[in-house]
Amino acid sequence: MKYEPLNNIGVMIHAVDLDITKFVNDKLKAIQLTNEQNLLMALLWEREGISQNEMAAKLNKDKAGIARMISTLEKKGYIRRKSCPNDKRSVEVYLTEEGRKLGDDVIPINKNIIQALNNGMTEEEIGELRRLLMKIRGNVNIL
């Protein structure tokens, strides 16, 4: 195999990730929500009361980064934190009424984003892409 450090699948995936992040940030700019904040809110629109640790695990983010995002979203008035009744060291996160209303605006945008990303691909191709990406993820996680 010829060594071409800038012509490999990792570089291509990174470039696509940057393009997707810019695309999503552009779509959410008017709402003043970043791609990362959107992912966190999406977790809460699916299920409230999720812990900060669970958010970090689901989003594959460090706990400090999740805590900063939660703090920012709390200042915007979209979420609130509550101590877990079973474990006082753990914090659960809930939507405020404003956070629920935000979902009415953002969820349709998220659906359009997904549709745009999947444009021109069949369900089989999307499934194959997911399978291949998970295979790559597994390859780097065993190193």
Rank of each mutant, 00 (worst) to 15 (best):
E128S: 04
N112S: 04
V93S: 00
L33P: 05
M41D: 02
I13A: 15
G10R: 03
I20H: 07
L6F: 13
L117K: 07
A57T: 11
D87W: 12
M12V: 04
N60W: 07
T72I: 15
N35H: 13
C84E: 05
A67H: 05
R89N: 08
E36R: 04
N86F: 15
K29F: 10
Q32F: 06
M41A: 09
E97V: 10
D19T: 09
S71C: 07
Y78H: 12
D87N: 15
R89C: 02
E125Q: 15
E54W: 03
K27G: 00
T34R: 06
K101Q: 08
G138R: 09
I50T: 07
E123W: 02
L28F: 08
N118W: 08
C84G: 01
Y94P: 03
L39V: 06
N118K: 14
I31R: 15
P85Y: 04
R89K: 11
T72L: 10
L44A: 10
D62H: 07
N86Q: 13
A30L: 06
E128V: 04
I79N: 14
N141P: 01
T122A: 00
L73Y: 05
M121W: 09
G138Q: 13
L95Q: 01
V140I: 14
N7V: 15
N53P: 02
N139M: 14
S83R: 15
R68W: 12
G127R: 15
T72F: 03
A64D: 12
G138F: 08
K2Y: 15
L117R: 05
Q52A: 13
I66R: 00
M12C: 10
D87M: 09
N112Q: 10
L6C: 12
L59N: 03
G138M: 13
N118C: 05
N86H: 09
D105R: 15
G49H: 00
L40G: 06
A57S: 14
A116N: 05
N119A: 05
K61E: 07
E128I: 06
R81C: 02
K27D: 00
D19P: 02
D105W: 11
E123C: 14
L95R: 09
D104F: 11
I20R: 07
E36H: 05
D17R: 08
G49R: 00
E97D: 10
A56R: 00
N38Y: 12
Q52G: 09
D87C: 06
T72N: 07
S51H: 01
E128M: 03
G127V: 13
D105V: 02
R137W: 02
R130Y: 11
G65L: 06
S90R: 15
Q37T: 10
R80Q: 12
T21V: 12
